[in-house]
Design a protein around this nucleic acid. Structure first.
Length: 779
DNA sequence: CAGTGAGCGAGCTTCCGCTTGACTT
């Protein structure tokens, strides 16, 4: 029987700590929160001073009873959840739910998982800080009120099953507003002039750029003309030392950004891989907002750097977090053992580990020293100059290990090494090229750049960045997708020995891949919320309520007063908004009149997404003709669709022809365009259009689909038609009476399985606990 | 996976933050 029970949040942490504490201590994990508001219920008693109704969720019941029985056995229970608002609340819920005796309960905290830190924590226990707990309750209750009052407004006004919240709605706002900036952006052209000179030695070349851009083609032409007779002289050479410092070690947000840039990982991918590294003991905790490194880490980093690179490359640095609302319950993300260069694991795990390790080491290394040389070339009779900038690394410092990437794809130009030149040297002009360039529109968000913006605004926490991105995509507010660029022409004027040449070239501009793009639903929901709930959507809303949570945590304010103040303003607006009766649906747009029927044509958000509609329903007249509906195509938007495009949609469903004596019909459904033929459905790929698809193309698609289905069937049994061996997404499997069974790895050739063997597999699977039916198939 | 959708009335959807499992279409 153990004397002491320690409860932490994470099981991996529990395992590590148990090793430090010896046999008198049993360490268990709460697996995060053990109690919360009900999921299906408002669970806040507004009338009764906002009393929250907490429950232990079903999947935590078993854990809680285990914790309870262990706590009963122990002489002392140490609540060791994280030292932040949520962690304090976890300890409080534990104390309440487990019915802990105050005399036999202590609250301890540590920021790093080292033996010393933990032993120190045990020596300096405290009590649960109820003010901090109350700040958490305020946070929880406020989020529930916002989410559970706002979402139903959207169900009524826009579409069922939508959602709104303090974090997700601002994330959508950022993306919608960026898209509007992009739409409103007018790019401006100017001419960038680059000269190539020949040095007096007759062979060495020097490239230099004009220190200003020229306004238009006339200007550029005139300038080149002037240059034809001009002479060029080295007017100035300046050398300046420049220092570069390493970036701070990783937090969750910076790890997500760098893993996206350098390794191409999605935000959730990064978190899954980091979780595995953490559970294997290779890295510290991966959900953190702190850039702090423990003394142990600082010490071992120093050792490693001096050992590998030498004393000159080491520099002590302690970083301090700048991000809003950081709670710093953990260390920065770093390797547990810096000396550990190679780890066991998948290729992805190795890559991410190496990134973390390099970043950590670089953060303790010396500045890089560069020498920047600027050469100015004067142009006779002109004020303008050509300027060449070169950089030479005189001491690489941290750059030897790690270089942070930038999001800006256009600023990646490297300044190279310049040839040696002397002051007043006269240069020969080889050629001068004036190229038309355009100002860049603002970039669309990537998952990672969205996380950065949210963090800068202090919105969301390390544990929620990835899920939030998932949520706004699940609600179809935002899609991760591609945008085709547009072709644009530009002029290149070249001055060479033979004179000035003008060439028109073409390029594709503004193409995007894997970026966050708002949908019609996202835009309509955002505009609606911005109109009626601007306070909640305000970029500073979270920051300002965080201040109030802080004063609750300091014991300066009752948490229920905070909530009351908010609710008294917020709730009446909800009521008022629901009561507003409008003639038109939110986001509805009238495109014009249908020339055939003379009825108005609308686009709006329907129950299943954006639709076009001809005519209005008449509630007073039951016999009046019903309006006609048609879904918009995936690449169409209710903001930009024209009357002509909308009317075309009503050509669907469309009979394309006959095949094998049955009609083929093209239409658009929930999952996009399709062909219906003989009771079967075939999707129409993006390359084809249901409005223009020919019967030949359709027949081709039907045949392709049949072929695929053919391959799906590996084997059938005449004796028992219910038993089938099929080819699925995860390889071959057995289907029997509507259920699927995996084929054991020991079977090399599934097609050789006999009926008896198949039955055996089915039976042995039946012994195992029944696989749960996948919950909630709707996203 | 399923290919719809103007209302006589069922019942459902939803938040943010802590944490890991279960397990295959």
């Amino acid at each position: 029987m153990q004397k002491n029970l320690v409860i932490v949040e994470s099981p991996a942490k529990a395992k590590t700590i148990e090793k430090f504490l010896g046999k008198d201590f049993k360490v268990m994990s709460s697996y995060g929160h053990i109690r919360d508001l009900k999921t299906k219920d408002f669970s806040i008693d507004i009338e009764n001073n906002y009393t929250p109704e907490y429950v232990v969720p079903a999947d935590k019941k078993k854990l809680v009873s285990e914790l309870k029985s262990e706590a009963k056995k122990a002489d002392m229970v140490w609540l060791a959840s994280d030292e932040d608002r949520e962690g304090e609340a976890i300890s409080w819920h534990l104390a309440e739910v487990l019915g802990l005796d105050a005399k036999k309960t202590k609250r301890i905290v540590f920021h790093e998982i080292t033996k010393n830190a933990i032993l120190h924590a045990i020596e300096t226990p405290r009590e649960v800080n109820i003010d901090l707990v109350n700040a958490q309750q305020a946070r929880r209750v406020l989020d529930r009120i916002v989410g559970f009052e706002l979402s139903p407004v959207l169900w009524r006004k826009i579409k069922p099953a939508l959602s709104a919240g303090r974090v997700q709605s601002v994330a959508v706002r950022l993306i919608v507003e960026r898209e509007r900036e992009i739409n409103d952006f007018v790019s401006e052209a100017s001419f960038r002039v680059i000269a190539t000179f020949i040095l007096p030695d007759g062979t060495t070349l020097l490239k230099a750029e004009l220190n200003k851009r020229l306004k238009d083609k006339q200007d550029a032409y005139k300038f080149l003309e002037d240059c034809q007779k001009a002479s060029f002289v080295i007017e100035d050479i300046t050398k300046k030392p420049v220092k570069k410092s390493p970036a701070a070690p990783f937090t969750t947000s910076t790890l997500q950004q760098e893993a996206a840039r350098k390794l191409g990982f999605s935000v959730s991918q990064t978190m899954m891989i980091a979780q595995r590294l953490y559970e294997s003991g290779f890295i510290t905790y991966m959900r953190t907002d702190s850039v702090h490194l423990s003394d142990l880490a600082l010490g071992t980093a120093k050792e490693a750097i001096i050992d590998i690179y030498g004393e000159k490359y080491y520099k002590f640095r302690q970083y301090h977090t700048k991000s809003k609302g950081a709670q710093e319950a953990h260390e920065a993300i770093r390797p547990t053992y810096i000396a550990n260069t190679d780890i066991e694991g998948s290729a992805q795990e190795k890559k991410l580990y190496e990134l973390i390790r390099k970043r950590t080491i670089a953060s303790q290394m010396a500045d890089a020293e560069l020498e920047r040389t600027t050469i100015s070339v004067s142009i006779s009779d002109k004020k303008e100059k050509f300027v060449a900038v070169g950089e030479v690394i005189s001491f690489d410092g941290f750059l030897q290990v790690y270089r942070e990437d930038t999001d800006d794809e256009h600023e990646k130009e490297e300044n190279g090494i310049l040839p040696p030149v002397k002051l007043n040297e006269v240069l020969t002009r080889k050629d001068i090229i004036a190229t038309e360039r355009f100002t860049q529109r603002p970039p669309r968000y990537t998952e990672a750049s969205l996380v950065r913006s949210l963090e800068e605004l202090g919105i969301g926490r390390p544990s929620t960045y990835a899920p939030t991105i998932q949520t706004i995509q699940n609600r179809e507010y935002v899609l991760k997708g591609d945008k085709d660029g547009v072709e644009r022409k530009y002029h290149v004027l070249t001055l060479s020995k033979t004179g000035i040449k003008d060439v028109e070239k073409k390029e594709i501009a503004g193409a995007d891949r894997n970026k966050l793009i708002p949908t019609d639903i996202g835009i309509v929901v955002n505009d609606f919320l911005m109109e009626y709930f601007p306070d909640v959507l305000d970029y500073n809303f979270t920051a300002s309520v965080e201040k109030e949570f802080d004063s609750v945590a300091e014991g300066e304010m009752e948490w229920t007063n905070l909530i009351d103040k908010f609710y008294k303003v917020f709730h009446p607006i909800v009521e008022k908004t629901v009561a507003i009766k409008t003639e038109h649906k939110v986001g509805e747009r009238e495109l014009g009149i249908d020339p055939k029927s003379g009825k108005p044509v609308f686009v709006k958000i329907g129950r299943y997404g954006p639709i076009a509609q001809i005519g209005q329903a008449n509630p007073d007249d039951k016999n009046a003709p019903k309006p006609q509906f048609a879904s918009l195509m995936k690449d169409q938007s209710i903001e930009t669709i024209t009357l002509e495009e909308a009317l075309k949609l009503f050509d669907l469903p469309r009979v394309i022809g006959d095949f094998e004596g049955e009609e083929m019909v093209a239409a658009v459904g929930r999952f996009g365009p399709f062909i219906r033929h003989a009771g079967k459905f075939v999707s129409i790929p993006k390359t084809l259009d249901p409005l223009s698809i020919t019967s030949e193309e359709a027949i081709e698609l039907i045949k392709e689909k049949r072929e695929k289905e053919e391959k799906r069937n590996i084997k059938k049994f005449d004796e028992d038609p219910a038993m089938e061996i099929l080819n699925g997404r995860y390889g071959p499997y057995i289907a029997y009476n509507g259920k699927n069974y995996r084929i054991p790895k020991s079977v090399a050739k599934p097609e050789d399985l006999t009926l008896e063997e198949c039955k055996k597999i089915v039976e042995s699977a039946a012994d195992k606990p029944a696989t749960k039916k996948r919950a909630a198939k709707k996203k």
